[in-house]
Design a protein around this nucleic acid. Sequence first.
RNA 1: GCCAACGUAGCUCAGUUGGCAGAGCAGCUGAUUUGUAAUCAGCCGGUCGUGGGUUCGAAUCCCUCCGUUGGCUCCA
Length: 743
Amino acid sequence: MSADSPSSPASSQAAEVQVRLPDGSLKPQPADATAMDVAKEISEGLARSVVAAEVDGTIVDSFRPLGEIADDENVVPLRLLTTRDESALDVLRHSAAHVMARAIMRIYKGVSLAFGPTTSGGFYYDFDMPEKISEDDFPKIEAEIKKIIKAKEPFERFVLDRDEARKLCDDLDQDLKVEHIETGLGDQATVSFYRQGEFVDLCRGPHIPHAGMIKAIKLLSVAGAYWKGDASGRQLQRVYGTAFFDKKELASYLEQIEEAKRRDHRVLGKQHGLFAINPEVGQGLCLWLPKGARVRVTLEDFLRRELLSRGYDPVYSPHIGRVEMYETSGHFPYYRDSQFAPLFGSEVGGLLDAWSTRLDKDDLSKDDEDKLIAAAEVFGVKLPEYKPSASNDAKKDVLHRWQLNHERYLLKPMNCPHHCQIFGAQPRSYRQLPLRLFEFGTVYRHEQTGELNGMMRVRGLTQDDAHIFCTADQVEEEFRATIELTKFVLESVGLDDYRVQLSLRDPDSSKYVGSEENWDHAEGALRGVLEQSGLSFNEEPGEAAFYGPKADFMVRDCIGRSWQLGTVQLDYNLPERFKLEYKGNDNATHRPVMIHRAPFGSLERFTGMLIEHFAGAFPMWLSPEQIRVLPLSDKSVEYATAVAKQFDEAGFKVTVDASDGKVQAKIRNAQIDLVNYMAVVGPKEAESGQVALRDRIEGDLGSMPIKEAIARLQKEVETRQVRQAVKGSTVSIAESGGAATDY
RNA sequence: GCCAACGUAGCUCAGUUGGCAGAGCAGCUGAUUUGUAAUCAGCCGGUCGUGGGUUCGAAUCCCUCCGUUGGCUCCA
């Protein structure tokens, strides 16, 4: 049974169906009755709020004849979905997408419809059209939408076979829909359409009964998108919007978007002097300002101490490495496009590199080839073995052999090749395993310009990277320890809402490196550890990297957004490529298994996420300015300095605000700067050796001896207490619903 | 990389149909010597992202490049 199945021939339909309601009761209904009819029988009020129906777990139109969707025994297990059901919201939004498309087609000419699905926070519709829509056009589109909603016209469903469907779409000048019927829906005998007034759209549904149910709708943004996600294909215009059953819910959704904007790490990073990204330094290259760097140092110190106590060995490796090493690892040229260009020891290096690339793409004319040979000779490079008549592969080989004899360096895109070299730098015995090498390793990746985003996506990033080299038997225990570490790290910074995504191999694919047994063993071990850990996790078959399965930590912040942070990945590939081996207790050589893991992911991204999570107000232990001493006037500056010295000696990050002006102003500035504690000192405190402590969150705590203040604040640091004043609701922006429709 | 929007003082932003570039905050100087979220006054500060074009005249209109933002595509 499926909502998509074509309606059965009328002859085979019984005249009556048995509707089974959630309470188990059976209601006989005529076969052409609908869920809405059932609702009306129960009560008019219920009927008014029915959005759709759920039959056997599938959501269907409330206006669909029940006979079409009954099972073999003519029973329809029916649940009515009202405006209060979460899954009804998706139905509403999908219908809202139709209404928006209808409005846009009324205003603009030559609109070709693509897809209009729902997203976690709303919906969008993609259009191919000659005119450009701008956000300035939203008011007039929204006005048209309101007209459509006010008319309360019903949605009607009808089914056509493929030929009829193609003809209809053709008649409607919907060439993208025609293409989709021919390709994407090539295996469907019939397809469904929905009509609402003059608007007819190929669509799987389901839809709300009538447009009047859309009580709140708002267009949010317009952006480019590709037809069927293909970057080489047609560029479409995508209009995003959202809709709710209730105006208040829309208002609270918009408030959440505002809250997310207020927390934007790029804004807060600038405001609080945490980091800067300056085009003169380079796109995506992060400058850690002193305050941001303090946060990072604290994080690094914290993790370093943990790693040292958990049996890791610190290592350091250079920021560049020979291209050959990345050819061995496979990162070059596979990720060539997202790496910075190589650095060449010879001035002709770039020429030969470009030459080789042209050959690789088979994009080199005879004429240009002669010029390149001549140009190389200008620089004194003769390639007698290079035969213009030879195959491209043979020619590339000649160029490559020359390159091997000349220096080519790459800005390090990954730490693992270096760590493999460190493993290989000495003969290894099973007694040394597991060998855990860690480094805060800075890597450089030439991310596409459109991808760069504050600290979240940068071109130079520092991974809290480590590679564990172990035997196959040790994988399980190492994985367990890594999961444990990551949990500990996340919870230390107050992130306790997370789950693990376990990415497994696609059973049908042959693209994977490593033996079948190894994969089976590893996947089983990972699953077992996660089950024992009590963490919530979900399995994603087919999402594994080609070199091994992985577990990613998906962390939810305090306003409900999901971040992919820490990761643990098994790797059978690199030990093979670098021919790493150790001597076993059987005196034979074996290949180790490698585990990549990074609890933070990258310091940039992690810090950026923390800024947003805490809205810039770091908990005491991470704070770049924990205490600010505020002298009442010039007269108390001397005592303030002495107080600050004591806090400093006790290990706090402390400053003194010696500016003139009233203490109210100093407090205000300290509050705005999100300093955790203020220590107000005047003549009274100087006389008694006290400070008047003010908490950023609680306000004035009264006067106390300095020692008492120090003890109190030290305790807060040591216990890594998180006393953030959480703002925002618990409803998630990033995730809810999510049953995206295909067409 | 692609589509769109945007780029004015350190920051946030005004700037009308093309006609002398503005405010608040920050900063600096001075006065004030203060008890839990803004003391007062003065001053400094901009080749309006870059380069070109149209025009008697461009922050304003057009093009180029650079950068930012929202998406798309990518993400070892």
